[in-house]
């Protein structure tokens, strides 16, 4: 099958690839760009494991073809921490709230939550609704909800560091 070029900016880096038009975006990210943090849980748009930010919006990368992302800006879990390795406040909140066990669903939840964070705090009930497009089989969700709620409280890196320092001091 003939291939076509695709250009994306992913986690701030310009990348290109040549793919069959039928290749899904998630397969392109995982196989061609070798960013395997994004996961595949169902390939039919239900589990949310493949969620990435496409031009700032949370999308299911299993439901799109790679060629549809031509010229787009993509953010994946690999792009969450700072270049110095400093974790994003959301990552810290997930860590501190034990928001995952096996971690397979985590990239999807993290990217869904990253989009929510942009829009500001939600009530727990609303948050549960917003997260209901992502499946987790390990946690029973309570710790994920707690993690995102916590992240709302530390939504800027500075706030995150302050919260971290406070936790550290408390120890």
């Amino acid at each position: 099958m003939s291939r076509r070029p695709v250009h994306v900016k992913i986690n701030g880096v310009e990348r290109e690839g040549y793919v069959e038009p039928r290749k899904t975006l998630v397969d392109f990210i995982r196989e061609d760009l070798e960013l395997t943090g994004t996961h595949v849980g169902c390939e039919h748009g239900v589990c949310g494991a493949c969620t990435v930010l496409l031009d700032g919006e949370a999308v299911r990368s299993c439901l799109m073809f790679a060629v549809q992302a031509e010229g787009c800006e993509i953010r994946t879990i690999e792009g969450m921490a700072g270049p110095d390795g400093q974790l994003h406040p959301l990552q810290e909140a997930f860590r501190d709230n034990h928001s995952f066990q096996c971690g397979f669903c985590t990239p999807g939840f993290m990217m869904t939550a990253a989009a929510l964070l942009e829009e500001g705090p939600l009530s727990e009930e609303d948050l549960r609704h917003e997260l209901s497009g992502n499946l987790c089989r390990c946690t029973g969700y309570q710790s994920i909800v707690a993690g995102v709620m916590d992240a709302f409280g530390r939504s800027t890196p500075a706030a995150g560091q302050a919260a971290d320092a406070a936790t550290e001091a408390a120890r």
Partner: peptide, 21 residues
């Protein structure tokens, strides 16, 4: 103690190594 899990950093940064990786 609920010490922070050793596994967490790699999972949080997308560097877990699952079978499809």
């Amino acid at each position: 103690e609920s010490v922070t899990r050793v596994e967490d950093r790699r999972i949080l940064t997308g560097r877990g190594r699952y079978i499809d990786d």
